[in-house]
Simulated assay, not measured.
Amino acid sequence: MADKKIMLVCNAGMSTSLLVSKMQKAAEADGLDADIFATASSDADNKIESEHPDILMLGPQVRYLLKSYQSKLDIPVEVINMQDYGLMNGDKVLKHALSVLDSEAAK
């Protein structure tokens, strides 16, 4: 079982799939065992229920879902930085997710 489970959500689940592969490469390079996956916003609730992610990362195009997910989930919910998303900077997005998880664990 992976140390961290990171779920990305976007409109159709397509634009985040490249970001997922870049995040997985960054995780492997850091020696981190992470389960990183993407889904469409229309299927996000089902995936949350079946996969139990540690953190939910929203693509900038679905940032309007932030408050809704924050109010109904007991895991961190973050919007991916638009520049990092646009540049498909998997390393930065991964590091942000991990820093949020680390700060949650320290509480």
Rank of each mutant, 00 (worst) to 15 (best):
Ile36Tyr: 08
Val79Pro: 04
Lys95Asn: 14
Lys5Gln: 10
Asp102Val: 05
Leu87Trp: 01
Gln70Ile: 00
Lys25Trp: 00
Lys22Arg: 15
Gln70Lys: 10
Ser17Ile: 10
Lys5Asn: 14
Ala40Lys: 13
Tyr64Ile: 02
Ser68Asn: 12
Lys4Ala: 07
Ser50Phe: 13
Val20Thr: 07
Met14Ser: 12
Leu56Arg: 07
Leu66Ser: 00
Ala40Thr: 13
Ile75Leu: 11
Tyr64Gln: 06
Arg63Glu: 13
Asp35Phe: 14
Asp43Met: 15
Asp54Gly: 05
Ile6Met: 10
Lys25Met: 09
Ser15Val: 04
Asp35Leu: 14
Gly13Thr: 10
Ser21Trp: 00
Met7Asp: 10
Met88Leu: 12
Ala26Trp: 05
Tyr64Asn: 05
Met57Val: 05
Asp30Ala: 15
Ile80Thr: 06
Val20Tyr: 03
Asp35Thr: 11
Ala38Gln: 13
Met1Ala: 11
Leu94Tyr: 09
Leu18Arg: 05
Ile48Thr: 04
Ile55Lys: 05
Lys72Ala: 00
Met7Ser: 10
Val9His: 07
Asp54Cys: 11
Ser50Thr: 15
Tyr85Arg: 06
Lys107Arg: 14
Ala29Trp: 02
Asp35Tyr: 14
Lys92Gln: 12
Asp84Met: 00
Lys72Gln: 07
Lys72Gly: 00
Ile6His: 04
Ala105Pro: 05
Leu98Asp: 08
Ser103Arg: 09
Leu73Glu: 05
Ser15Ile: 07
Tyr85His: 05
Lys107Tyr: 07
Ser21Met: 08
Asp54Glu: 03
Glu78Leu: 04
Val93Tyr: 07
Glu49His: 11
Lys107Glu: 15
Glu49Arg: 12
Ala29Asp: 15
Asp102Arg: 08
Lys47Gln: 15
Asp43Ser: 15
Ile48Gln: 06
Ala27Lys: 03
Leu56Val: 13
Ala105Gln: 15
Lys22Ser: 03
Met57Ile: 03
Lys72Leu: 01
Asp84Pro: 00
Leu8Ala: 12
Thr16Leu: 10
Arg63Trp: 01
Ser17Val: 09
Leu98Cys: 03
Lys47Met: 15
Met82Asp: 06
Ala12Lys: 13
Val9Tyr: 06
Val9Pro: 05
Pro60Met: 06
His52Ala: 15
Ile80Asp: 04
Glu28Gly: 04
Asp45Asn: 15
Ile80Tyr: 07
Met7Thr: 09
Lys47His: 14
